[in-house]
Computed example of a mutant assay.
Amino acid sequence: MADIPRTSAGRYQTEGLSPQDFNRVFDQIQTDQRKKRRRARSTITPFLLKNKSLDDIIKLGRRKGGMYFTKDDLKGFERNRNDARNTFQNGEAGITYAQLISHSQQIDIKRANNKVDNGLGITSATPVSIKHNLLIVQVKASQASHDQHHRVKIRFEQWDALLDELTNDKRKNQAIVRQLCAGRLSFDCDCGRHQYWYRYIATAGNYAVAPPKEYAYPKEKNPNLKGVACKHVIHSATRLQSPAWQVRVLQTMLQVAKQVGYGDDRRNTTEHISDKEQKALNRNRKSQTNAAAMKREWDLYQRRQVALGKKLDDENGGIDDLRKQLTKSKSLTAAQRKKAEAVQAKLQKERDKNALLKQQLADQFQIRKQAFIDALVMTGMNEKDAEAKFMQTVKGGRQ
């Protein structure tokens, strides 16, 4: 845009902008990126993954190391894509904060914590606007970056359900907003790291704030689909775990809960956070991501899921015993038989419910296993030992 000043590096000037102008500039950046993306060549589309013709593979060019891509390469990419979907998709949008950190690459966490010495660390992030369940965060770029800022979008996926739980009880409301910020989140960032490494995974895992979505496989930047989020998202999500930011989110939740009108009424415009509020929010001292603590929380969640599976097995056994007893109803009176049939229907409903839970647990077992292994690999353990540790943990939980 001609009316937006640029820096000496040719990037848009984002320093000192109002929240309105900040979003206007980054809307233009998104438009520019979309146009550039349309001109991309040699991309691996979903269609190409399924239809691996030799001519199309040759058009992809050479991979790192100078060799041409092969059908086996594309088969591996397809397996990685399916693994990403199985790891993150659970039928609901978003991933929790613990899962986000547990699956992030160590280098991204170090940069988010400014624990690197090459100028790529970041130090600050400030909410600039919020509209219902979408929070916009302004993140100051690293010293080594040509950009001045990046824009992170965070969407609270449990917003509607938790909105219904708000009361006049201040303490309860604080617990609700903590649950919201630690719960399922979807996100997006304009930076190249997210665009070329992680947006594809976010789209496959159903935790992308769209637009934009990415369907072209990151064959060069992230062919193994490792990691979850860039340093800007990690830093913003970590600061979101502090009371300072949560108070501001709760303020909007209460306003929405009390409003009269449709939830998507155009009069319910975006709330732009004032300079005074931003200064107060900048006093947020929750800037360091504790990967070890999130790993422990994720491990605890896995153990609880294993225990739940055992409990469901035990309950199903009890239901089977009751079911056998009910077969004796043939010798009962009509009134007794009617009552027994009502009990049978109730038991069948519970059985169906438990069967569904067991299926969900089975589906999530592979998710838990990969998450456990990724978390240990992130700490330095090799993948074989990490898998053995997982099986040891599962066996221990069943004792």
Rank of each mutant, 00 (worst) to 15 (best):
residue 287 S to Q: 14
residue 287 S to D: 15
residue 288 Q to R: 14
residue 288 Q to C: 15
residue 288 Q to F: 14
residue 288 Q to K: 11
residue 289 T to L: 00
residue 289 T to N: 04
residue 289 T to M: 01
residue 290 N to M: 08
residue 291 A to Y: 01
residue 291 A to D: 00
residue 292 A to V: 07
residue 292 A to D: 03
residue 293 A to F: 01
residue 294 M to E: 01
residue 295 K to D: 04
residue 295 K to A: 06
residue 295 K to Y: 11
residue 296 R to V: 04
residue 297 E to R: 11
residue 297 E to D: 11
residue 298 W to G: 10
residue 298 W to M: 10
residue 298 W to D: 07
residue 299 D to E: 04
residue 299 D to K: 08
residue 300 L to C: 14
residue 301 Y to Q: 11
residue 301 Y to R: 14
residue 302 Q to F: 07
residue 302 Q to I: 10
residue 302 Q to E: 09
residue 304 R to L: 13
residue 304 R to D: 10
residue 305 Q to A: 07
residue 306 V to R: 06
residue 307 A to M: 02
residue 307 A to E: 09
residue 307 A to T: 08
residue 307 A to K: 06
residue 308 L to N: 04
residue 308 L to G: 01
residue 308 L to W: 05
residue 310 K to I: 06
residue 310 K to D: 12
residue 310 K to M: 07
residue 311 K to P: 00
residue 312 L to G: 05
residue 312 L to I: 10
residue 313 D to V: 15
residue 313 D to N: 08
residue 313 D to H: 12
residue 313 D to A: 09
residue 315 E to L: 15
residue 316 N to Q: 11
residue 317 G to N: 13
residue 318 G to H: 11
residue 318 G to W: 07
residue 318 G to C: 05
residue 319 I to Y: 02
residue 319 I to K: 01
residue 319 I to Q: 03
residue 320 D to E: 14
residue 321 D to W: 02
residue 321 D to M: 05
residue 322 L to I: 10
residue 322 L to T: 06
residue 323 R to V: 10
residue 323 R to D: 09
residue 324 K to C: 12
residue 324 K to H: 09
residue 325 Q to V: 09
residue 325 Q to T: 12
residue 326 L to G: 02
residue 326 L to F: 06
residue 326 L to D: 02
residue 327 T to R: 03
residue 327 T to G: 05
residue 327 T to K: 02
residue 327 T to L: 03
residue 328 K to G: 03
residue 328 K to Q: 07
residue 329 S to L: 05
